Amino acid sequence: MQLVSLDDIRTAADRVRGQVLRTPLLPAPWADTDRPLWLKPESLQAIGAFKLRGAVNALAALDERAGAQGGAAGQGGAAGQGVDGQGVAARPSVVAYSSGNHAQAVACAAQRLGVAAHIVMPENTPQVKVEGTRMYGAEVVLVPVGERESAAYRLVDELGAVLVPPFDHPDIIAGQGTAGLEIGDDLPDVELVLVPISGGGLASGVGTAVKALCPNATVVGVEPELAADAADSLRAGQVVEWPVEDRVRTIADGLRSQPSELTFAHLQAVVDGIVTVTEDEIRDAMRVLATRSRLIAEPSGAVPLAAYLHRSGELPRGRTVVVVSGGNVDRAMLADVLG
């Protein structure tokens, strides 16, 4: 299996430049003095999450291939491209499945390209993410939890569309890896990077970039205890599946997916370990981000900081970057967390 390389991530950076925010590293003066901390606030992206990086790269790459092939078939489960009356490759509609942030990212990227987007989302998706997806002109299809993938594939067949998966594709991984590229450029002496893990696309991309640019850095994934399938998988040396009814227990709704064979291969190569955090620790990290750094984070985005705050004994000390992956939190939940 071919893994994404630093060159792939650099190519992605060229594609997404000007389309995604180059988020800063924000120092956290309230952090432990022997564990200097910087926050990578991907919550500041236009759609409120890092997912815009992968979506923009994937759709831009698809557009490039369509133009280069003049209507030849796409890749990675994509349907064939049409050709308009002037012999120009037509842009196919796209389909995505997501609990929210990837949905908004694909909808936003598709709107910019003038492409129709159909997004399959679980019925229990926070309303803020459903509304955000519709805001970009996408058609949202709500389905029972556990059926989003199969429903998406049915739409691909019915519409002759192209599937843009949330993590299981090299273009998505390379796009997410641009965040790691920025970390390596902005803090080349970083010693620890904490990144959330769900399907594994972000950790795969960030880990690949950080390990290439900062070979002495440690990359640690963080999961909720209630959705710790990736931690189990790394221990077992193979993908371990958790029932969907177990994974949906966590408030970190963006971390309820499981790694694919592709992302798991990357995790094995570039992630040094995984720690898990409790639901109360996630809530505490959300409060700390809001009150001490003035950052609104959704539960999934706060998970890495929860590890920094509550799992210090399991982590190496030193200059640390926490990736705050998203900020699309339901208002009622935020009010409850802030109390």
Rank of each mutant, 00 (worst) to 15 (best):
G313P: 06
L305D: 07
A217V: 02
A217D: 08
A217T: 07
N216M: 06
V244F: 12
V220F: 00
T276C: 12
S312Y: 05
R247P: 03
G221C: 02
D284G: 14
A285Y: 11
I282V: 15
G254W: 13
R292D: 15
H266L: 01
E298L: 14
D272V: 02
D284H: 15
A290K: 02
A307Q: 06
D253N: 13
L255T: 10
A285H: 10
Q258M: 05
L289K: 12
R287Y: 12
F264D: 00
L255W: 04
A269G: 04
A307P: 05
L305F: 10
D232S: 15
W242A: 12
Y308V: 04
D246C: 11
E314R: 02
G237D: 03
R256Y: 09
T263K: 00
T250Q: 07
I274R: 00
I274A: 01
L267K: 01
A236I: 07
T218Y: 00
Q268H: 01
G254M: 08
A290N: 07
L289G: 03
A252T: 12
D253R: 11
L255R: 05
T278N: 10
Q258I: 03
V270G: 02
E298F: 11
L234N: 00
L295M: 14
I251Y: 04
R283G: 13
R256L: 07
A227F: 13
R247N: 06
T250W: 07
I296Y: 11
R247T: 09
A302S: 08
R247L: 12
D229M: 06
R294L: 02
I282E: 12
I296A: 03
V275P: 04
I282H: 11
Q238E: 14
W242S: 10
A230K: 03
S260R: 01
V239G: 05
A306C: 12
G254Q: 10
D280K: 14
Q258N: 04
A231R: 02
S293K: 06
I251L: 15
M286E: 09
D229Q: 04
T250H: 09
E245S: 15
A265Q: 07
R292V: 08
V240W: 04
E298W: 12
E245F: 10
E314K: 04
Q258G: 00
G221H: 03
P243W: 12
A228N: 15
V239K: 00
W242T: 06
A269N: 06
G237I: 01
E281P: 05
R294I: 00
L267T: 00
A228C: 13
N216Y: 02
Q238T: 11
I282R: 13
R292Y: 08
V240S: 07
A302V: 05
P243G: 05
V277A: 12
L295S: 11
V220P: 02
R235S: 09
E241C: 09
P215K: 09
R287K: 15
V270E: 05
E281V: 10
A306D: 12
G273Y: 02
A290R: 05
T250D: 11
A227T: 14
L309E: 08
E298D: 15
H266E: 00
R235T: 09
G313Y: 01
S260C: 03
E261Y: 08
E225R: 14
Q238A: 07
E225C: 08
A269R: 06
T250Y: 08
P259K: 02
P224F: 13
S312L: 03
A297Y: 09
A231F: 00
